[in-house]
Protein backbone atom coordinates (compact mmCIF):
# COMPACT_ATOMS: atom_id res chain seq x y z
CA UNK A 1 0.00 0.00 0.00
CA UNK A 2 1.38 3.41 -1.01
CA UNK A 3 1.96 6.12 1.58
CA UNK A 4 1.19 9.76 0.94
CA UNK A 5 2.31 12.59 3.19
CA UNK A 6 -0.22 15.30 3.90
CA UNK A 7 -0.14 18.53 5.82
CA UNK A 8 -3.13 20.25 7.36
CA UNK A 9 -4.35 23.27 5.44
CA UNK A 10 -5.93 26.38 6.93
CA UNK A 11 -6.16 28.43 3.73
CA UNK A 12 -9.18 28.04 1.49
CA UNK A 13 -10.62 29.93 -1.44
CA UNK A 14 -9.73 30.28 -5.11
CA UNK A 15 -6.61 32.44 -4.78
CA UNK A 16 -5.14 30.52 -1.85
CA UNK A 17 -5.48 27.10 -3.51
CA UNK A 18 -4.23 28.51 -6.80
CA UNK A 19 -1.04 29.59 -4.98
CA UNK A 20 -0.72 26.09 -3.52
CA UNK A 21 -1.06 24.47 -6.96
CA UNK A 22 1.71 26.74 -8.29
CA UNK A 23 3.96 25.37 -5.51
CA UNK A 24 3.29 21.81 -6.68
CA UNK A 25 0.76 21.00 -3.97
CA UNK A 26 -2.73 19.59 -4.38
CA UNK A 27 -5.55 20.78 -2.10
CA UNK A 28 -7.58 17.88 -0.72
CA UNK A 29 -10.11 17.01 1.94
CA UNK A 30 -10.52 13.95 4.18
CA UNK A 31 -13.93 13.02 5.53
CA UNK A 32 -16.02 10.06 6.66
CA UNK A 33 -16.82 7.99 9.75
CA UNK A 34 -18.85 10.94 11.10
CA UNK A 35 -15.63 12.79 11.97
CA UNK A 36 -14.98 16.47 11.37
CA UNK A 37 -13.54 16.86 7.81
CA UNK A 38 -9.91 17.98 7.53
CA UNK A 39 -8.55 20.17 4.72
CA UNK A 40 -5.08 19.02 3.70
CA UNK A 41 -2.50 19.43 0.96
CA UNK A 42 -0.59 16.59 -0.66
CA UNK A 43 2.27 16.50 -3.14
CA UNK A 44 0.79 16.65 -6.65
CA UNK A 45 3.40 14.41 -8.33
CA UNK A 46 3.14 11.73 -5.64
CA UNK A 47 -0.64 11.73 -5.91
CA UNK A 48 -0.52 11.43 -9.73
CA UNK A 49 1.87 8.47 -9.43
CA UNK A 50 -0.63 6.70 -7.15
CA UNK A 51 -3.54 7.41 -9.52
CA UNK A 52 -1.54 6.08 -12.50
CA UNK A 53 -1.03 2.81 -10.67
CA UNK A 54 -4.82 2.59 -10.17
CA UNK A 55 -4.42 2.43 -6.40
CA UNK A 56 -7.48 3.44 -4.42
CA UNK A 57 -6.51 2.46 -0.87
CA UNK A 58 -3.51 4.32 0.55
CA UNK A 59 -1.93 5.16 3.87
CA UNK A 60 -1.92 8.84 4.62
CA UNK A 61 0.59 10.33 7.01
CA UNK A 62 -0.86 13.48 8.53
CA UNK A 63 1.75 15.14 10.74
CA UNK A 64 3.16 11.80 11.92
CA UNK A 65 -0.17 10.02 12.29
CA UNK A 66 -0.66 7.24 9.68
CA UNK A 67 -4.26 6.43 8.66
CA UNK A 68 -5.89 4.26 6.00
CA UNK A 69 -7.81 6.34 3.48
CA UNK A 70 -9.71 5.60 0.30
CA UNK A 71 -9.34 7.89 -2.71
CA UNK A 72 -12.97 8.78 -3.20
CA UNK A 73 -12.88 11.36 -5.99
CA UNK A 74 -10.66 13.62 -8.03
CA UNK A 75 -11.70 16.88 -9.63
CA UNK A 76 -10.22 17.70 -13.03
CA UNK A 77 -9.84 20.97 -14.94
CA UNK A 78 -12.00 21.69 -17.99
CA UNK A 79 -9.59 20.09 -20.47
CA UNK A 80 -9.22 17.05 -18.21
CA UNK A 81 -5.41 17.33 -18.06
CA UNK A 82 -4.75 18.33 -14.46
CA UNK A 83 -6.26 17.36 -11.14
CA UNK A 84 -7.47 20.35 -9.14
CA UNK A 85 -8.66 18.73 -5.93
CA UNK A 86 -8.92 15.29 -4.34
CA UNK A 87 -11.36 13.73 -1.89
CA UNK A 88 -10.21 11.10 0.61
CA UNK A 89 -12.36 9.05 2.94
CA UNK A 90 -11.35 7.37 6.20
CA UNK A 91 -12.01 3.64 5.93
CA UNK A 92 -11.57 0.37 7.81
CA UNK A 93 -9.94 -2.33 5.73
CA UNK A 94 -13.07 -4.54 5.79
CA UNK A 95 -15.43 -1.72 4.97
CA UNK A 96 -17.50 -1.99 1.78
CA UNK A 97 -17.11 0.83 -0.73
CA UNK A 98 -18.79 1.54 -4.05
CA UNK A 99 -16.37 1.88 -6.97
CA UNK A 100 -16.51 1.95 -10.76
CA UNK A 101 -14.16 -0.62 -12.30
CA UNK A 102 -13.10 -1.01 -15.92
CA UNK A 103 -14.22 -4.18 -17.74
CA UNK A 104 -11.46 -5.73 -19.89
CA UNK A 105 -12.36 -8.34 -22.49
CA UNK A 106 -10.06 -11.29 -23.19
CA UNK A 107 -10.10 -13.49 -26.29
CA UNK A 108 -11.92 -13.36 -29.62
CA UNK A 109 -15.48 -14.76 -29.68
CA UNK A 110 -15.93 -17.85 -31.88
CA UNK A 111 -19.06 -16.23 -33.33
CA UNK A 112 -16.91 -13.56 -35.04
CA UNK A 113 -15.40 -16.14 -37.40
CA UNK A 114 -18.87 -17.00 -38.75
CA UNK A 115 -19.97 -13.44 -39.43
CA UNK A 116 -21.16 -12.29 -36.01
CA UNK A 117 -20.31 -8.98 -34.37
CA UNK A 118 -19.44 -8.45 -30.71
CA UNK A 119 -21.65 -5.82 -29.09
CA UNK A 120 -20.44 -4.49 -25.76
CA UNK A 121 -22.89 -2.29 -23.88
CA UNK A 122 -20.68 -1.16 -20.98
CA UNK A 123 -17.07 -0.24 -20.43
CA UNK A 124 -17.30 0.04 -16.65
CA UNK A 125 -19.16 -1.69 -13.86
CA UNK A 126 -20.27 -0.34 -10.49
CA UNK A 127 -19.44 -2.75 -7.69
CA UNK A 128 -19.52 -2.82 -3.92
CA UNK A 129 -16.37 -4.41 -2.59
CA UNK A 130 -14.25 -4.52 0.59
CA UNK A 131 -11.79 -1.68 0.34
CA UNK A 132 -8.75 -3.98 0.57
CA UNK A 133 -9.93 -6.01 -2.48
CA UNK A 134 -10.56 -3.18 -4.95
CA UNK A 135 -9.39 -4.49 -8.35
CA UNK A 136 -7.68 -2.37 -11.02
CA UNK A 137 -10.04 -3.91 -13.60
CA UNK A 138 -12.15 -7.02 -14.05
CA UNK A 139 -11.22 -9.46 -16.81
CA UNK A 140 -13.98 -11.22 -18.75
CA UNK A 141 -13.30 -14.09 -21.16
CA UNK A 142 -15.46 -13.71 -24.28
CA UNK A 143 -13.76 -16.40 -26.40
CA UNK A 144 -16.60 -18.91 -25.84
CA UNK A 145 -19.34 -16.67 -27.25
CA UNK A 146 -21.04 -17.94 -30.40
CA UNK A 147 -23.74 -16.17 -32.42
CA UNK A 148 -26.72 -15.41 -30.21
CA UNK A 149 -24.77 -15.96 -26.98
CA UNK A 150 -24.63 -13.26 -24.35
CA UNK A 151 -22.91 -12.44 -21.08
CA UNK A 152 -24.72 -10.79 -18.20
CA UNK A 153 -23.31 -8.64 -15.41
CA UNK A 154 -23.69 -11.67 -13.17
CA UNK A 155 -21.13 -13.56 -15.31
CA UNK A 156 -18.38 -11.06 -14.53
CA UNK A 157 -15.83 -12.55 -12.08
CA UNK A 158 -15.59 -10.29 -9.06
CA UNK A 159 -12.97 -10.09 -6.30
CA UNK A 160 -13.66 -11.73 -2.94
CA UNK A 161 -16.59 -10.11 -1.15
CA UNK A 162 -17.58 -8.12 -4.24
CA UNK A 163 -21.19 -7.48 -5.23
CA UNK A 164 -22.67 -5.91 -8.35
CA UNK A 165 -24.70 -2.75 -7.92
CA UNK A 166 -27.72 -3.01 -10.19
CA UNK A 167 -29.38 -5.84 -12.09
CA UNK A 168 -27.04 -8.87 -12.51
CA UNK A 169 -29.32 -10.37 -15.20
CA UNK A 170 -28.77 -7.43 -17.54
CA UNK A 171 -26.78 -8.21 -20.69
CA UNK A 172 -23.46 -6.41 -21.11
CA UNK A 173 -21.94 -8.24 -24.09
CA UNK A 174 -23.40 -10.35 -26.88
CA UNK A 175 -22.49 -11.68 -30.30
CA UNK A 176 -25.11 -10.74 -32.85
CA UNK A 177 -25.63 -11.03 -36.59
CA UNK A 178 -24.92 -7.55 -37.98
CA UNK A 179 -27.98 -5.88 -39.51
CA UNK A 180 -27.41 -4.48 -43.00
CA UNK A 181 -27.95 -0.74 -42.84
CA UNK A 182 -29.12 1.22 -45.90
CA UNK A 183 -26.29 3.22 -47.43
CA UNK A 184 -26.93 6.74 -46.13
CA UNK A 185 -24.38 8.41 -48.37
CA UNK A 186 -25.76 6.89 -51.58
CA UNK A 187 -29.45 7.42 -50.83
CA UNK A 188 -30.79 10.66 -52.29
CA UNK A 189 -31.65 13.09 -49.54
CA UNK A 190 -34.18 15.82 -50.06
CA UNK A 191 -32.98 19.12 -48.66
CA UNK A 192 -35.53 20.29 -46.13
CA UNK A 193 -35.99 23.98 -45.70
CA UNK A 194 -36.51 25.19 -42.12
CA UNK A 195 -40.13 25.73 -41.27
CA UNK A 196 -40.17 29.48 -41.22
CA UNK A 197 -42.99 31.86 -40.78
CA UNK A 198 -43.46 34.42 -43.51
CA UNK A 199 -42.94 37.84 -41.93
CA UNK A 200 -46.01 40.00 -42.12
CA UNK A 201 -45.55 43.07 -44.27
CA UNK A 202 -46.47 46.26 -42.54
Amino acid sequence: MATLKATKRTESGTNAVRRLRKEGLLPAVIYGHKKEPISVTVNYKEFIAIIRHHERLIQMEIEGDVQDVFIKDAQYDVLGDNILHADFEWVDLDELVKVGVEIKLRGTPVGLSVGGALRVRAEDIEIEVPVKNIPESVMVDVSGLGIGDKLTYGDIPLPEGGKIIGDPTKTFASVEVPVEMPDEEEAPVAEEAPAEETPSEE
Binding site: I51, H54, R56, I71, D73, A74, G80, V99, G100, V101, E102, E123, D124, S137
Partner: peptide, 8 residues
Protein backbone atom coordinates in the same frame (compact mmCIF):
# COMPACT_ATOMS: atom_id res chain seq x y z
CA UNK B 1 -8.09 13.10 -29.36
CA UNK B 2 -8.82 12.14 -25.76
CA UNK B 3 -9.56 8.86 -24.03
CA UNK B 4 -12.26 7.72 -21.67
CA UNK B 5 -11.21 7.95 -18.00
CA UNK B 6 -11.78 4.68 -16.17
CA UNK B 7 -12.13 4.92 -12.41
CA UNK B 8 -10.66 8.19 -11.20
Amino acid sequence: MIYRRHGL
